[in-house]
Design a protein around this nucleic acid. Structure first.
Length: 107
DNA sequence: CAAATGATTGTTGCG
DNA sequence: CGCAACAATCATTTG
């Protein structure tokens, strides 16, 4: 269904990373993503299964496995991602209460 | 309001 | 010290 693959995700990871708009006083960084949590845990197993494989191999292998897992497996990881997101919201809040409350300008 | 874009997150290993 | 594929994200920004 649903799934309007919106957001044309470019292949390039960063074409020119910079703050989207104003400068963030507290820089409310987002939370990690499921893959991040997955790697933290899988890195051990993958590294164990591929002690000779460096990031190049490991990275790909990890990715393949990640997708190869059942949604249930990613569950714990996705869950963490959700919690992490909430963490980010917290920072965001501080960011709002810090020095972002503005309409026109002032900084 | 809707769409998109960007910024970010973490892993390993080396020059 | 930063980057490299790998994947998700998802809040913010702009139109």
């Amino acid at each position: 269904m649903p799934k309007t693959k919106s957001t044309t995700r470019v292949s390039k990871r960063d074409g020119g990373r910079k703050r989207r708009a104003k400068k963030d006083p507290n820089a409310p960084k987002r939370g990690l993503s499921a893959y991040m949590f997955f790697s933290q845990d899988a890195r051990e197993g993958v590294k164990l299964a591929n002690p000779d494989a460096t990031f190049g191999q490991l990275g790909k292998i990890l990715g393949e496995k990640w997708k190869g897992m059942s949604a249930s497996e990613r569950s714990p990881y996705e869950k963490k991602a959700e919690l992490d997101k909430q963490r980010y919201e917290r920072e965001k809040e501080a960011y709002n209460a810090s020095g972002a409350g503005d309409s026109s300008d002032a900084e």
